[in-house]
Design a protein around this nucleic acid. Structure first.
Lengths: 359, 359
DNA sequence: CTGAAAGCGCTAACAG
DNA sequence: CTGTTAGCGCTTTCAG
């Protein structure tokens, strides 16, 4: 075969170019490469050899335009410097790749506007569907028009973790109430009397639900609820000194109360509570037990290693991706059209901030 | 204006549809929307109003095909559940968005094959350029053909952190040698005599460079180098029990030596060293000082809070994105064609694992 | 001022 | 077995 010089390594080969060089038509090349039986063995060989030689790869964009699907998922999360979200992404990416999908990541930074922007930016054909965990600001504003619009446009959304009852779509969550109950029960069983919870403001659904589980468990154990043992952190992540503020709030709380156990709604709150508590003389777990949510590096490497609720982020990621891709690929078969919400199991990982349960 | 019924909310409007409804040509619509002066004010108004009403947004894929550029960057990193990479991504995303670019993320999981796969998957038109930090396995194998090929294909690459001298392209790094020197000098100045370094195998460039800085600083201070104070961790991240193994290696090391300061090449090694050291009776920083690299959550919330070298991941991300986008948008002007490597400043953040420097 | 036509790279129905 | 044609959605000459 004579090698044609105008095919420098630089020039990315296209069907057109191959066709010209081989002096056949574009569609012949296309068919040959896809092993169509319309094409003679001989031609196929020739075309394939040439394609291989010049390392031909079909252009994704052209395929996307033709097929009206991009084989890529848009993932929009509030923050990426965050262990939980990071594990979720890794779960998504892994699974999506296996099924031939790519992942575009957008960050909302907990901002409503950025969430909308990202959605818009990607909804114009760049992706086939969204996986999203809502920004705090969105939850506060309760403005969901952007979600409604993209669903109306026919772009499916799967929500995870921070989800909305108001929007019907597939969802993946942890059973926050039940999990929180398990944790509080464990604290009670191991002898705690004055159990506090450090949680978020109610507009963050996970915070609200976990608080609900806390309240419920106390009731079940006939323990009088003391509202003042519920600390709702007023957390503005984007502020410069939010860590200092957090510590301050926690410190005041711990000093003013007589607490022997804490359930914290995330790692950071748990770690902070431990740090502050230690500073004011508590010993953990002897006179203060702590359980956190989200099993991340912080918990694992904390001092002492923190007992936490593992949310299985990777599994959640896998589930969201699966739900989304299944929906994308079944659009025609209206069979399983109903929206699903899958609940991912949690698990309490016992480390050294809780006591073993009394027999 | 009469509202035409076949435009249900579901149907995504295209120029074609708008043209038909308004009974003008496609090109007129296109021009009107782009405010071409070829079009009469009246028509423009009409078209724009209609487009707005039906929430028309140009299809990105079609634009990409037409313009031969996608306005999206491919970022390939070894791991995402990792504070440093996560901050880099956030820096990239932020800056890229500002300039109208999206970010596709690919994870190599430290595997050569997955790195190649990801590169291939995205190089077929999905992205305009790459930002990449190499997988350990790639560094070991020294097989860089995939990088060479994509550069040959005309797709620019910017490498960061784990970079290669062998490949010419833009790079963003931290000055590892110098930084490491600063850290070691600090340890020496605050009285340390037997300074150890916990580092990676040499094929990880940052490990090698930091080690070099360590060696250099000792020499400058006329301290005899004791090779046995260099612990090179044989780290296979993907193994199940790599944490246990790590602890084990560190423990043996600490027990067999008489060490009063440690420079650790990343957070995990630093934290692990502290944990092990505490367990065998060291007090930090009284008789063991520790400095880590990578200022992440682990360091900040460690017990005691760890003195670390901040690598300014976010800044690095911004720089990589800037380098890449600038190159993409200047392809014609061969002016600044030379490859650059920008060095991002580091900074030692003093917390409680080091002593203040003796006067 | 408006529209027809070509083309980005690819596929597929339809002719030959 | 191979080629022509049309079309995915958009921009951009070039005619009218």
């Amino acid at each position: 075969m004579k090698i044609i010089e105008n095919l420098s390594m630089k020039q990315k080969p296209t069907l057109k170019i191959i066709a010209k060089e081989l002096d056949v038509s574009i569609s012949t090349v296309s068919k040959a490469l896809r092993d169509s039986k319309e094409i003679s063995e001989e031609t196929k060989q020739k075309v394939k050899a040439f394609a291989k030689l010049y390392n031909y790869k079909p252009n994704n964009i052209a395929l996307s335009l033709k097929n009206r699907k991009t084989k890529t998922l848009g993932v929009i999360i509030p923050e990426i410097v965050h262990h939980f979200f990071t594990t979720v992404i890794s779960g998504i990416e892994n699974y999506a790749n296996q099924r031939g999908y790519n992942v575009i990541v957008g960050l909302s930074n907990e901002s409503f506007d950025k969430e909308v922007l990202n959605l818009d930016m990607l909804a114009n054909g760049s992706i086939d569907g969204f996986i999203i965990s809502l920004a705090k600001e969105t939850l506060q504003k309760k403005d969901y028009h952007h979600l409604r619009e993209t669903i109306d446009q026919g772009i499916p959304i799967v929500m995870f973790d921070r989800v909305l009852d108001e929007i019907s779509c597939d969802k993946v969550v942890v059973d926050d109430i039940e999990t929180s109950q398990k944790a509080v029960q464990k604290l009670i069983d191991s002898g705690a009397k004055n159990i506090a919870i450090i949680t978020t403001e109610d507009y963050v659904s996970v915070g609200k639900l976990r608080t609900r589980g806390y309240v419920k468990t106390l009731a079940q154990n006939k323990i009088q609820l003391d509202e003042s043992l519920i600390l709702k952190i007023d957390d503005h992540l984007n502020e410069e000194n939010h860590l200092e503020k957090l510590e301050h709030q926690v410190k005041e709380f711990l000093q003013s109360k007589n607490i022997d156990a804490i359930l914290a709604v995330n790692e950071l709150y748990a770690i902070t509570a431990m740090k502050v508590a230690r500073a004011i003389g508590y010993r953990i777990p002897e006179n203060l037990q702590v359980i956190g949510f989200t099993d991340g590096v912080l918990s694992k490497h904390a001092y002492p290693p923190l007992t936490t609720v593992s949310q299985h982020g990777k599994e959640m990621g896998k589930q969201t991706a699966e739900l989304l891709i299944d929906r994308l690929e079944n659009e025609s078969k209206e069979a399983d059209d109903k929206y699903k919400t899958v609940i991912v199991k949690t698990e309490i990982i016992e480390r050294e901030t809780t006591k073993s349960i009394n027999p």
